[in-house]
């Protein structure tokens, strides 16, 4: 039986893991490979690293963390942030990541999804979308770290992204991010019922039951969270045991 995945998410800036709220008030946490190894041993099923380094020049250096992470962990990991071209896909995969997530650039140049999918396979092309609620049952896609409204309808973009070749969607609710009041279940449900690729919930996890609800009510394939793991408010093993007690398949 395929299990639901628990995915700690690590934001990386200038080669260090950092954490903020609603993309603001960013604080330094730890080296990526140290946290990566910690989570790998703690039972995480997969890791996501988003590089939020400000400039392209600095990102080149920042991305050196990928090789260090790849040499330390033996679970899959995805790298995103600032991915603009097929060359970025090539570089990140070559450094040892298993998947690459693309966000703003895919909105600007949707063909990038197709290009990467044909070259490296849909399984390593993750479409990450930052989504904000605009009306009842209506969400829009934002880019540039949640600052710019693209005008794109989130549900339509999810379907289009999969049609173009994305093999997985990470759906991050800007409204819920960092609030620890639970995932946006309505949004997630709307997306999982419309696409045929794995969907990962992101933004808003605060307590054990938030994770269970995302799986049971919204049928997501994976649950992603950052601060509750980084600040050890929730241990991965404890979370998995809780999910199992709710009848959810997990890798224990």
């Amino acid at each position: 039986m395929l299990t639901r995945r628990i995915i700690p998410c690590l934001d990386v800036r200038d080669g260090r893991v950092v954490k903020g709220k609603k993309f603001q008030n960013i604080v330094d946490v730890e080296d990526p490979e140290v946290l990566g190894e910690f989570y790998s041993k703690a039972g995480a099923d997969e890791l996501v690293f988003y590089d939020i380094t400000a400039t392209n020049e600095a990102r080149k250096i920042s991305l050196e963390f990928i090789e260090k992470v790849a040499s330390k962990i033996n679970i899959p990991f995805c790298v995103g942030g600032g991915v603009n071209s097929i060359d970025d896909f090539t570089e990140i995969l070559r450094k040892g990541a298993d998947k690459v997530s693309v966000n703003s650039a895919a909105v600007k140049t949707p063909e990038l999804i197709t290009l990467a999918s044909l070259k490296y396979g849909a399984q390593c092309v993750v479409l990450s979308m930052d989504v904000k609620k605009v009306d009842s049952g209506k969400w829009r896609v934002y880019v540039n770290g949640g600052r710019v409204d693209t005008g794109l309808d989130a549900l339509e973009w999810a379907i289009e992204g999969v049609r173009l070749g994305a093999g997985e969607l990470v759906v991050n609710s800007i409204d819920a991010d960092g609030m620890k009041e639970g995932y946006d279940l309505e949004l997630l449900k709307a997306i999982t019922s419309r696409v045929g690729v794995p969907v990962i919930a992101s933004g808003g996890a605060g307590k054990l039951d938030d994770f269970a609800k995302a799986v049971i009510e919204a049928d997501v394939d994976g649950v992603l969270a950052a601060s509750v793991f980084h600040y050890k408010e929730i241990e991965i093993k404890e979370l998995k045991e809780y999910l199992k007690s709710k009848g959810i398949e997990v890798r224990l």
Binding site: M1, L2, T3, R4, R5, D45, A122, Q123, G167, E168, G196, V197, P198, D221, G222, R251
Partner: peptide, 11 residues
């Protein structure tokens, strides 16, 4: 299968 690729941990 509802979801392809088959992606994740299976026994």
């Amino acid at each position: 299968m509802p979801k392809i690729p088959h992606m994740g941990w299976n026994n």
